[in-house]
Design a protein around this nucleic acid. Structure first.
Lengths: 352, 352
DNA sequence: CGACTCTGAGACAACGTGGTCTCGACGTCA
DNA sequence: TGACGTCGAGACCACGTTGTCTCAGAGTCG
């Protein structure tokens, strides 16, 4: 029977089911039933329990609950991205979050900064917290360390880059084909000397984009001039420097293909500084905010980030719901968005 | 003693301490000691335990651990922001993550989309997972629902906006003074009709910025013309429409003060469409990527987002380390960044 | 050499919860 | 009316871990 003294609980720490049970005059198990909405509880009893819980400020302990529960699910999912602050990663996080929220699942996030050691360390920390699944944009070249986790029932979905030495679901863009599209677009503008500016060649997507670049040139029966290829550009400043250097060559490129966000922005900055933004064509990989507001607008290969995130999340939850089909890679198409910078023809300044 | 059959564990689920103990021929408690690096364990025994753990692919269960541990800490912190995808929120997340990582603490994140109901719901979900602390950019006007959690020992730090009906630490920018700085800057350019374009007046920071706007005008002995004030602009499109409307007035403003990111970008877009970007001055609140690459560059009041995030995280962990001093609000200064748009003088197009 | 301390490892219980089983009360029907 | 089924609530224990206590064996010292 509920007491009627109205002081708040003075004991430090949090009230437990036992205390609620004591106050309501029932067994802890009955409190458990009420909290979990089991329908066989007498409505009057349930009301008493709820009142007691309310009075004590009781909150169920999901940690204990998931420990005891049969399936051991924690209703949380880990997400490892390159850098939570960059637009691509944060858009991905938000999209996965949207899907997860509908299931009452929370996201644990971590940034890897392209560091394979951190990938392993953070993945393990997440696993030690028994997340139900992991969404990973991998930094390393070997995910075999996750095999035992996969066997133990942790759902794994890779995003942007496929897992290595591990058979798991992945959701990626068609990097090679998209790079070919970009370079073809520049070739159609009459360009014959097209530079490639990209980040670490060790990143598989970067490698695929470079592969597309060389392939497109070969198809056009053009040589790949090593002098026009600059890789390993990690910072905006590196991209700026590289752009200056290739444009200072005796026979400079008339167009640039940039393999990634940060590089694109750096190149764009360099072109502006040199006053060449209307004379040198540029197509970048990855869209970014305000790309349309620059003059000229920056033409890009846009990935379907929301689609990628949504499908990744859906794939993950399908696995958690018991889908046993063999792991598969979903390849999403990209889109060439023409805004001006990519439509500058050889020898003709943009009319913008 | 370790066995030497080398098959991987076939049992479904994850190996536990007991199984490691069994394989190593020790008591579970000894495994616990080894895992936790207790130094009193015989090195040879510890090595045997580690080998057994390795062979089984054992990973400690932090869920169970934190349940049993005296302090009940989970080494995780919840973070509720407006929208994980927006640059301000994602920068904040990343900064807090950096501090948290040094302590091996993980971040659980949630987006509120300015929905007070979601704030409460997500805060409770995080509490049910027994996060050690919460970093919140609040959406609602009442955080008293957190009082019991605060009493129960959950550390709380509010960011960007102070808590209401709750006494807790906060880290904010000086919104009112910064708005005055912005408006003064426009007044110094000779402007007398300055529009205010802002988002929901119900958001405390927006209200403070508006307050600064009116105050600056009053100090200059100028009237606040209601026709030049547009609030509740939540989307970029709303900002575009509002900009068009105020500029279509019989006596249009010659300068705009925009209270927030999305609004600033919308206004900037509208000015461009109208061809007025070099004639109408603009200062925005909150910096954003590429603001310097537009023509003219967008002058802004920049918050010290990294400072805010870092101090918020440090304050949180100081509380978790036992700091009992009364809750305090840390106010961080902002910085006016002049890039062109705010330096357009009345009646003179920018020379940019 | 016996009583002492000290050290390292194990036995035991408990953290907060939910699965399982039990049991009393009640209703039903022959 | 008595045997049986049903149903709601509690007793009991286990989930994986660690705090506490115990204890065997080694070391120490008068």
């Amino acid at each position: 029977m509920p007491q009627d003294n109205s002081e708040p609980p003075k004991r430090p720490g949090r009230p437990t089911m036992r205390e609620v049970a004591l106050l309501a005059g029932v067994a802890p198990k009955t409190v458990s039933r009420v909290v979990n909405g089991v329908s066989t509880v007498d409505p009057a009893l349930a009301a008493r329990v709820r009142a007691a819980a309310e009075r004590l400020g009781y909150r169920p302990n999901l940690t204990a609950s998931s420990l005891r529960r049969g399936d051991g699910r924690t209703a949380s999912v880990g997400m490892l991205v390159e850098d939570a602050a960059n637009p691509y990663s944060s858009a991905l996080i938000r999209t996965v979050e949207n899907v997860a929220r509908q299931r009452g699942v929370l996201l644990l996030i971590g940034s890897l900064d392209e560091d394979p050691a951190r990938e392993r360390a953070l993945a393990h920390t997440l696993i030690d917290r028994r997340v139900d699944g992991l969404v990973i944009v991998p930094s390393g070249r070997d995910q075999s360390y996750l095999i035992s986790e996969q066997n133990a029932g942790t759902a794994l979905v890779f995003v942007d880059r496929e897992p290595k030495l591990l058979d798991a679901d992945a959701v990626v863009s068609d990097n090679r084909a998209s790079a070919i599209t970009a370079v073809d677009h520049l070739l159609a503008g009459g360009h014959r000397r097209i530079a490639y500016l990209g980040d670490l060649a060790s990143i598989s997507t970067a490698a695929q984009r470079y592969d597309g670049y060389t392939h497109a040139l070969e198809l056009a029966q053009l040589p790949v001039d090593e002098a026009l290829v600059r890789q390993g550009l990690v910072t905006e400043q590196a991209a700026i420097d590289a752009t200056r250097e290739v444009l200072a060559l005796p026979d400079p490129p008339t167009a640039l293909f940039t393999s990634q966000n940060v590089v694109t922005i750096g190149c764009s900055r360099a072109l502006r500084e040199l006053g060449l933004q209307d004379r040198v064509a540029m197509v970048g990989f990855d869209d970014f905010p305000l790309a349309d507001m620059l003059r000229p607008g920056i033409s890009v290969i846009a990935q379907d980030v929301e689609g990628i995130g949504r499908i990744a999340a859906e794939t993950l939850f399908r696995r958690l719901d018991g889908d046993q089909s063999p792991p598969a890679t979903t390849v999403l198409p990209t889109r060439l968005i023409t805004r001006g910078s990519g439509e500058i023809r050889r020898g003709e300044p943009s009319g913008d």
